[in-house]
Amino acid sequence: MAVIRDVMPAFELFQPASVSDAQALLKRYGGEAWLLAGGLDSFDWLKDRIKRPAAVIDLSGIADLKGIKPWGDGGLEIGAMTTLTEIVRHPVVRERYSILLEAAESAASPQIRNQGTVGGNVTQDTRCWYYRAGWSCYRAGGNICYADTPQAINREHAILEADRCVAVNPSDTAPALIALDAQMVIRTGAGEQVIAAEDYFVGPGTDITRMTVLKPGSLLTSIRIPGTWAASAEGSGGAGRVQFYFEKIRDRNVWDFALVSVASAMATTGTTIDRIRLVVNGVAARPLRLAAVEDLVRGKPRNEATAVIAGNLAIEGAQPLTFNGYKVPLMRNLVKRAIRGVEDVDWTS
């Protein structure tokens, strides 16, 4: 399957200056159009000649899609073409949404964060190497999953919600954005649509060929983060103290995709958990919000006992493949850490 990656096949390039111009191009080219954000995911596909779009629409010239501005009651609106570096360096993100800073900073490397956008980070395709190598698997429109056979190498694949396809979502910012209850602003042919971040991502049971709800003709324009989950000290705004937890486990400490990651936003009064949003990624084709675990721990003290029952509930129904069984205790322990905090960590397997 070796290909010469130096020279991509020719394509027609469009560099629209406005969202409406981009939409007109999307309408004209339909399924033949390819949206180019930072290019990190896109160029892999094009260089490998696995995706051969006729028209590439480069969004980098659209000023409206860039930058971070205040939104609503103490929140932020982040343009889809804002780079991960801009997010990492933004003072309000640092002060109020440090979980997003941590997640963005954990992605890839300095060069990639300078080029990669938050819209691209949440919308990128899965890293399943059978799929990325161009095999005609379920996700690519075929009728087999090469990662789920007796000989398959599936160490990085799904333990939950697999449905024919066992690929996982690779995004680092996605779980943090879901924990912050972010909203995704999407422009479709029919107008603007705003959906919760957790509903932006789809599993194979919903649509086996897509990672997100975006269909040809649609694009993500911005991400809104409400003020409700901004980090705060106890008593401010009449609510409890809001704290975050983010951890990404990977084979190398830098420059690698997550094996499993966890993100949580938690409001506590004293030691009691008042409100919580808890998300894991790297275990299914979409980042999973663990609503049942949230329900279980709400009103309980933030301690070891709560963490243990939370971790055990989180992994209920997990179905490991041949080589990814380690993800089950890993996910359980990460959930425990998120619930209890990191003092006196007791890892079990």
């Binding site: 390039l13 930072g38 290019g39 160029f43 570096t85 300095p110 060069q111 990639i112 300078n114 080029q115």
Partner: peptide, 10 residues
């Protein structure tokens, strides 16, 4: 002013 990989840019 930003470090980039020039193989990942047109």
């Amino acid at each position: 002013g930003a470090l980039v990989k020039s193989c990942l840019m047109l």
